[in-house]
Design a protein around this nucleic acid. Structure first.
Length: 468
DNA sequence: TGAAATGTTGGGGCG
DNA sequence: ACGCCCCAACATTTC
């Protein structure tokens, strides 16, 4: 009888450069590619329809890729602790292989599984596992720059290190599978087709743009970023594939400026690894301030203000455009993420966890480590955090990073005819200008929810309380 | 991976 | 020609 192993797919929806799959294939003749739709995850308030739709589409793409190699994706719904033993006995599998996941939820789940079944966790979610990048005394880094230096000093993965996709996958016949749920109805303008092939296409396209990344990455009105985050989130692309591409762009750069630009993108990848390491070594950050003194923070937590922020109705065009980009497309430009996060936490004095949860509910790329790290950074309560007095001015940020107002107009059609000079301060339009633009402030578009200068002073006072 | 307040400098208008 | 003032423009410090 053929030996069998389960490849338990979680956040590694790819056949190329997949250490868990490779380990399963080398351990046994037959492999059961299994995805378990866990109701505890699906119904969590950290998950939303956007990301579920992307996941289900990704599973369909993975199933097709497996099918073309003679395999099959087995899908089950239920608690992994119940599904895995049942499938192991039905298939005769002697071992389970899966990619390690740093989130506290995943680690608890995997520990319970490993207590009952032979579960082998492999690296793969990051270029280097969290225990590989440590200070000389063995403790984890809590500041990004030294972390990134240590990361860059480790032997870089080479193109030849990337694991090839198996040509053929043999799955034991006759295993019952459930259908992949139809993706929930979503707005049509979600510009992220799921799947490994699409991820690779995007990476190849971005390799041609990486040398300009440093110049255009902050421009919200341009497509200067890689837009790979949803694919990295679900492992449709491995971090090693991304890092190899970044390194080769740096080496092939014709000018120092081009090399620097690609290095900036490599640093963005390292931020992902940094926050994975933080979540792994300090799991309490998932629910708590990394800096305990922020437990005293006098949040205002005004429900109506939070609702206005969520709906993109704060009266500040950059904020509202970004929030609608998030809810309508499942993604937000990174610069915009910093601006809206700063606004929620500082202008509105709302607990960063509220914003963190809302992001998780809407982002295709919503990742516990990166999202939590970003929010704690903005709130100033995290590792290597932004200083408390760094308060983004939404008007200036708009003028700098959306200079023609094209980003604002794209997501806020009610401002389509506002003159560019006032696109980031539409409340400054005279009654005549409002009429000409077909946009009456307070009717077609809200007046500012808070006054910038007053909100800034209130935030400084609140943060001073924590500091002292 | 800011912004505002405050300080400094230098050119030009003007008596 | 000179001093005075104004105020960009830039630099520094403060939050």
């Amino acid at each position: 009888m053929a030996t069998t192993a389960i490849w338990w797919v979680r956040r590694d929806l790819r056949l190329t450069d997949n250490p868990a799959l490779t380990a399963a294939l080398s351990a046994s003749e037959q492999v059961v590619p299994l995805y378990i739709i866990d109701p505890a995850l699906v119904n969590s308030d950290y998950v939303g329809a956007n990301r579920l739709a992307f996941l289900y589409d990704g599973l369909r793409a993975l199933a097709a890729d497996l099918h073309s190699r003679g395999g099959q994706l087995i899908v089950r719904r239920g608690d992994p602790l119940a599904v895995l033993p049942e499938l192991a006995s039905a298939s005769g599998a002697a071992a389970i292989f899966a990619e390690a996941d740093v989130s506290p939820f995943a680690r608890r789940r995997d520990a319970r599984v490993a207590a009952r079944l032979p579960l082998h966790l492999t690296a793969g979610a990051s270029v280097f596992p969290p225990d590989a990048v440590l200070k000389a005394d063995g403790t984890p880094y809590t500041v990004f720059t030294p972390f990134s230096k240590a990361w860059k000093a480790l032997p870089a993965p080479q193109p030849a290190d990337l694991l090839a996709a198996p040509a053929q996958i043999s799955v034991p016949p006759g295993l019952p599978t459930e259908s992949i749920p139809a993706a929930p109805a979503l707005p049509k303008d979600i510009p992220f087709p799921a799947g490994e092939a699409e991820a690779r296409r995007r990476l190849e396209k971005f390799e041609g743009q990486m040398q300009q990344y440093g110049d255009v990455r902050d421009r919200m009105d341009l497509n200067g970023t890689s837009r790979l985050s949803p694919y990295l989130r679900f492992g449709m692309l491995s971090m090693r594939q991304a890092a190899v591409a970044a390194r080769s762009a740096i080496e092939a750069a014709p000018t120092p400026a081009a090399a620097k630009s690609a290095t900036v993108w490599l640093n963005e990848l390292i931020w992902r690894e940094f926050y994975q390491s933080i979540l792994y070594h300090f799991p309490r950050v998932r629910t708590s301030n990394f800096q305990p003194k922020f437990n005293r923070m006098p949040w205002a937590n005004n429900q109506a203000h939070f609702a206005a922020w969520c709906q993109g109705r704060t009266g500040y065009p950059v904020i509202d455009a970004a929030m609608r980009q998030l809810t309508h497309s499942g993604w937000m430009h990174n610069r915009a993420r910093m601006i809206v996060a700063s606004f929620l936490v500082k202008h509105l004095l709302i607990d960063w966890r509220w914003g963190e949860r809302f992001f998780m509910q809407h982002l295709l790329d919503g990742d516990p480590a990166a999202n939590n790290g970003g929010w704690q950074w903005t709130a100033g309560c995290g590792t290597d955090a932004a200083p408390y007095f760094r308060i983004f001015n939404p008007i200036l940020q708009g003028k700098k990073f959306d200079p023609h107002g094209n980003y604002v107009r794209r997501w806020l059609p009610e401002l389509a005819h506002v003159p560019t000079a006032l696109i980031h301060t539409p409340w400054e339009m005279s009654p005549l200008e409002q009429q000409a633009a077909g946009c009456r402030i307070g009717q077609h578009y809200p007046a500012p929810l808070v006054d910038h200068s007053r909100a800034r002073n209130r935030a400084l006072a609140a943060y001073n309380q924590v500091k002292g």
